[in-house]
């Protein structure tokens, strides 16, 4: 077990509920710290004692394998005790309210609660009822801040910067918390953001979020440095938002033909899990020169370690609630 880097960094927030409200400096510091964990995660001994004695609860009201595993590893590699709770075996299904659950868990004195919930705003609501730090691991269609951070770290490692990059976020923007968090983060860090999707998958007044809107994929990808694909939920594929899988792939699936419009060294990203052949062509997804999808997963653990560290620092200089 190593002690790891321990120069404290300042993160003036009690919780991480979203990218909204974070300053460029907050984000840079989290990314800098995450970068230091990358090497540690590649060693045989991945563990350190920074969070020894701390209790971290993974509370997932929505199915997730990778995000939950990523947080669990992050907590364990920092030496914390991590337990997993999912909606199936908690009493939620027996009618206990979200707030009851929060109060119950709070009584067990956890240090960090990591929460995923199918409803927008639910994680914030829960955070108001507990004494510990809360990390939003995805709430409804609202935010998924650690995904945006890991995407940013991936980009920064490959491109050396975020400032000035042209990023296209493509697909089901309307229902995507990943898109919202990424738009916030990239805009905060001085990147230029485009969204590319059929009109039915764009939320109302999305242009007011500071993005350029494209409904033609080739035009939307023209000259971009980064292509971020979003997952299309299967139930939205047939007839309700788009007429068919075939039509969707034809116009909005990422293949080499459409990718020609992007810069030759454009990176391809996807938050996973992918629907191969729906939003992304298999060969493009597996292109080792351009696809950074597997690195994103790796960066996920590093970023989450940095987040857990940031929220566990004592004493913390916490800005007053807005």
């Amino acid at each position: 077990m190593t002690t790891g880097p321990s120069a404290p960094f300042s993160f003036p927030h009690r919780h991480l509920l979203g990218i909204e409200g974070l300053s460029p400096d907050d984000i840079s510091q989290l990314l800098d710290r995450a970068e230091t964990y990358i090497d540690q995660n590649r060693q045989a001994d991945k563990k350190q004692s920074l969070l020894r004695g701390r209790t971290i609860i993974n509370l997932f009201f929505e199915n997730s394998t990778r995000t939950r595993a990523s947080f669990e590893l992050a907590g364990k590699r920092l030496g914390g005790d991590v337990i997993n709770m999912s909606a199936e075996w908690s009493s939620i299904k027996k009618g206990e309210t979200l707030i009851d659950t929060a109060v119950t868990l709070n009584a067990m004195h956890p240090d960090v609660l990591i929460v995923r919930h199918p409803e927008s705003g639910a994680v914030q609501l829960l955070s108001e009822k507990v004494d510990c730090a809360v990390v939003n691991a995805g709430d409804g269609m609202h935010e998924h801040p650690t995904q945006a951070l890991l995407d940013a770290l991936t980009i920064r490692l490959r491109k050396g910067r975020l400032q000035g990059l042209l990023v296209a976020i493509c697909g089901d923007v309307a229902h995507s918390r990943v898109a919202r968090s990424n738009i916030q983060l990239l805009n905060t860090m001085g990147a230029r953001v485009r969204v590319v999707a059929p009109r039915t998958l764009l939320p109302a007044e999305v242009d007011r979020l500071g993005v350029e809107v494209f409904t033609d994929m080739r035009k939307g990808l023209e000259g971009v440095d980064i292509v971020m694909m979003l997952r299309l939920q299967l139930e939205r594929m047939q007839g309700s938002y788009v007429p068919s899988l075939r039509e969707y792939f034809h116009f909005f699936g990422l293949d080499y033909t459409k990718l020609e419009a992007a810069k030759p060294d454009a990176l391809i990203m996807h938050p996973g899990p992918m629907n191969r052949g729906v939003e992304i062509d298999t060969e493009v997804a597996d292109d080792i020169d351009r696809s950074v999808i597997r690195q994103q997963v790796e960066m996920g653990v590093a970023v989450r370690m940095a987040v857990l560290e940031a929220l566990s620092q004592e004493p913390r200089n916490i800005a007053p609630a807005k």
Binding site: G121, G140, H142, P203, A204, E205, V206, R208, L209
Partner: peptide, 15 residues
């Protein structure tokens, strides 16, 4: 109400 605020909050809007 459907619009920028609903989009930011990720709340389904009513047009």
């Amino acid at each position: 109400n459907s619009g920028e605020i609903a989009t930011r909050l990720g709340i389904p809007g009513i047009t």
